[in-house]
């Protein structure tokens, strides 16, 4: 589904990603972990098409196409979804209205008729039940005055509505208490199936108590320096990122 090769990217002339290689197949859950400043969120942003990042080298093949050549809206329409670390508050726009526009623009892109009000409401109800979110939250202005947990649940609700093929979740667990992490994880697990893939970006291991990854990658200084099965996350939790840092720094000095 996704094949990242030798990806280099940066912002305002500062190099952040320095040769990322990563392959994700349908049905898989990947986790990228790493210390602050290692480039995890940059990778998520570059994949979603955030425009202030500049890709200097490498390629990203997504569903047989070059992802980097696509506009951010087309990436979304082709099934790439980024759950934001900091979802934006938009007073005056309800989640319902926002999702109606998004769903129908994506349908239009695929040559489908827009959903009418009844069909849209039915879809809303179904997804609300799936991710356990309340109607009142969705009628309120988008993310305005939402708690951290509410914002992240709203992200997952949007993900349920748009049914992406590749969901990139940027620090979805940050700022959440254990209950909120459990609720969010349950929803992600429900939405995951053999035809889609999830890329989790996180600093902490605790999310992985609820979402079981197929692969864990450790990012440091703009590169993936270690990959392994889910047990790697436990090792990181135990030893901290320092052991990776030391390993790498020693290797680079040698």
């Amino acid at each position: 589904m996704l094949k990242i090769e030798n990806l280099h990217a940066g912002i305002e002339g500062k190099k952040i990603l320095k040769g990322i290689n990563l392959e994700i197949k349908a049905g898989e859950v990947h986790v990228i972990m790493g210390p602050n400043g290692s480039g995890k969120s940059t990778l998520a942003s570059v994949l979603a098409g955030r425009e202030n990042y500049e890709v200097t080298e490498g390629s990203v093949e997504y569903m047989g196409k070059e992802l980097l050549d696509m506009s951010p809206e087309d990436r979304a329409r082709e099934g790439v979804f980024l759950a934001f670390q900091y979802p934006v508050e938009i007073p005056g726009l309800s989640t319902t209205n926002f999702m109606k526009t998004a769903v129908n623009e994506i349908r239009k892109y695929h040559g489908q008729e827009p959903l009418d009000a009844v069909a849209f409401l039915r879809m809303m109800k179904e997804k609300m039940a799936l991710v356990n979110i309340d109607q009142s939250l969705l009628s309120r202005p988008l993310n305005e005055g939402f708690s951290g947990g509410e914002k992240k649940r709203n992200e997952i609700f949007q993900m349920a509505m748009l049914q992406p093929k590749l969901a990139i979740m940027d620090e979805t667990d940050s700022g959440l208490d254990i209950d909120a992490i459990r609720i969010v994880s349950d929803s992600v697990n429900k939405l995951h199936n053999k035809d889609n893939a999830v890329l989790l970006v996180t600093h902490y291991q605790r999310l992985l108590d609820y979402i079981i990854p197929d692969f864990v990658h450790v990012m440091y200084n703009g590169r993936i320096v270690k990959s392994g099965p889910k047990e790697l996350a436990l090792e990181l939790e135990e030893k901290g990122y320092d052991f990776i840092k030391n390993e790498i720094d020693v290797a680079e000095e040698a």
């Binding site: 098409g49 506009s71 951010p72 809206e73 979304a76 979804f81 979802p87 998004a102």
Partner: peptide, 15 residues
């Protein structure tokens, strides 16, 4: 940032 948020959900820049 708000524009990117909406666009990242499949909305055109104009929308």
């Amino acid at each position: 940032e708000a524009q990117f948020y909406l666009v990242s959900r499949g909305l055109s820049k104009q929308s």
